[in-house]
Design a protein around this nucleic acid. Structure first.
Lengths: 347, 347
DNA sequence: GGCCCTCCTGCAAACGTTGGCAGGCTCGTG
DNA sequence: CACGAGCCTGCCAACGTTTGCAGGAGGGCC
């Protein structure tokens, strides 16, 4: 009791716009206009207001402002797993661009499929944000419906959505270029490891496209497909899938992993089984994960932070009303050859 | 013109609490109370309100609510670099705990030292959040002052701050236990690589403590110190520092890295120089980074997501007024022995 | 049957800002 | 000197909730 009242007394209320107005000797409206550099405010007034605001350490209340203007100054960034390299980097890129433009970032870390469903059902974004950025998520129809219903600027990263701007790489081409690299080195027995294609609960939505690229490239070369689907995502998934691949008896001469984390899992299994890379088997991934350089993993690199920033920029354009309609930005990838790939063994 | 008016017409305004009230045949106050399950509302009314709200797809406006109640339902999470494994995991842990408690997470990705300063000067957190969680950041006095001035619940992760609750590991003990492991294997020539100790712009604030732990353990064993400071953080820093260490001519028999990413950089340099690990040199880190298992890196593991969740819980307790005063939660670490450490070579 | 208490509900006043509207002042021009 | 055109500025009505206060209805107890 006693303590509580003491505490609430000590907690000095924030200065409000009327306090600033009083101190500056003007009306609240003038303060509002002045502080936002809006319309025509005389330099003298502007100065007085600025001084008063600084003296009172005034910050505009997002609630008051949001209520009156209908804008929140906040963008929602929706991501399945921040802990994964790709997402963390995309979030960082997007955050920095948005923050620089004066927007706050509300992070929604969705996790697995069921929590994802719950999220889209409750749609907590409704009135909290001005725009939404979704990162490479496998979206069900219900999800996209919920997103569209928000009726606000929307950009997707790493995935296509009808009528929505997006930033991504050409996943099919990336996979093809990986396959071509292997073909070029003389491989003919190339397996692909995908991450849970059928139940996309955890996967990158890009998986299907990369698989398609692999198929196209193999078919064009007249070679048979060999696809293994990991039972879980990331390193563990790759490790487990590679184990299964080895248990089949006959080892392919090269493996294309859907993304680098899978490839890293593959490498771990191979090392533990003392299968030499690339002497006995070549491994290639997609992403150019931070660790690829450490593990000497050959990979098809994509610029992740840049894509995040690009997506943010698209969002900002839409918020400015500058946007011409949805665009689909496809950024280039580059093959980074390291020593996890090489010519197949003679045998 | 035409288009625009068409668009704004189509954009159906959100249902407000008075719409719900009208539909349910009650007053807005009753809707408010009912929806928050607050005071006593008759079951019949509660049901009618719930139905009306569902029918209109009503969501409370955070702005209206925030303005009236003074609460934001939002927690600010401040992090230097989300792209780093430790931070991404801590953010994930904290987010999930906060989200489960009904809070939104405003992410502030600060980056390097200058942007950090700018952030704390402008203090955009002021009226947007109910509480703040800062993740292992080296905070200057100006920073902590700005944080305290917010006068709201505050928790730090991976760092101590006077009068503020914190969650962390015992960094000195972690480093000591790493050194003891090496001593136990017979090493006497143990170097430590720290990440930019003097200018903590990028580093974990824990670095100083880990260094201290190393010093204490070495002194207790009667062995001389050998400290190398990396010029940048993470993998690249570790790689570069190891290069310098090798250029000195005499190689230590073991290296303790301030954290796993540094150790990973060390391993990269060693592999590229064909220095066998652990035959010629042992390497140990701290964290148990996701990649440690892939690289067979011996390390002192700490539970990162759990610490994030724990920190969130502390924050929630403070928001509930349950907190007894600041606590300093120290979670245990475990030595995970893999094959990057072994007895020193006979030579 | 009357009185008091409890339970439920409505009223109205905040909360802090924005933006349309209108009015006053100043300055330039004829 | 009069008139018109800008510039600046203030007034006021939102925006959507929460919450203290008060009042009405219904039920239990004597």
């Amino acid at each position: 009791m006693r303590e509580e009242s003491a505490r609430s007394e000590r907690r000095q209320r924030h200065a409000s716009i009327v306090d600033v107005a009083a101190l500056a000797g003007v009306s609240p409206s003038t303060v509002s206009r002045s502080l936002r550099g809006h319309e025509n405010v005389s330099p003298a007034t502007r100065q007085r207001v600025a001084d008063a605001a600084r003296e009172l350490a005034y910050t505009v209340s997002p609630h008051g402002s949001g209520l009156a203007s209908g804008r929140t100054g906040t963008v929602g960034v929706v991501v399945p797993f921040v802990t994964r390299w790709y997402f963390a980097n995309a979030v960082a890129g997007a955050h920095d661009a948005l923050h620089a433009a004066g927007f706050d970032v509300l992070l929604y870390h969705l996790g697995d499929s069921p929590s994802r469903d719950r999220f889209f059902e409750r749609m907590p974004l409704a009135r909290r944000v001005d725009a939404v950025l979704t990162l490479s998520m496998p979206l069900t129809d219900a999800h996209t419906l919920a997103l569209r219903a928000l009726d606000m600027p929307l950009v997707t990263l790493g995935a296509r959505l009808d009528g929505v701007s997006s930033v991504r790489i050409d996943d099919q081409a990336a996979a093809r270029s990986a396959v071509h690299h292997l073909l070029h080195q003389g491989h003919e027995d190339i397996a692909m490891i995908t991450a849970r294609e059928d139940d996309p609960g955890f996967g990158f939505v890009a998986g299907a496209d990369r698989l398609q690229g692999y198929r196209t490239a193999m078919a064009a070369a007249g070679l048979p497909e060999d696809v293994v689907t990991a039972r879980t995502y990331g390193i563990e998934g790759g490790a487990e899938a590679m184990t299964r691949l080895m248990e089949r008896g006959r080892l392919p001469s090269a493996v294309l992993a859907e993304y680098d984390e899978v490839a890293i899992g593959v490498l771990r299994t191979l090392r533990r089984s003392s299968v030499p890379v690339p002497a006995r088997i070549s491994v290639i991934g997609v992403d150019d994960h931070e660790m690829a350089s450490v593990l000497d993993l050959t990979t098809v690199a994509q610029p992740v932070q840049e894509q995040g920033a690009l997506a943010a920029r698209l969002l900002l354009d839409q918020l400015d009303g500058q946007a011409e309609g949805p665009v689909d930005l496809v950024v280039p990838t580059t093959l980074v050859v390291r020593s996890s790939t090489g010519p197949p063994s003679q045998s």
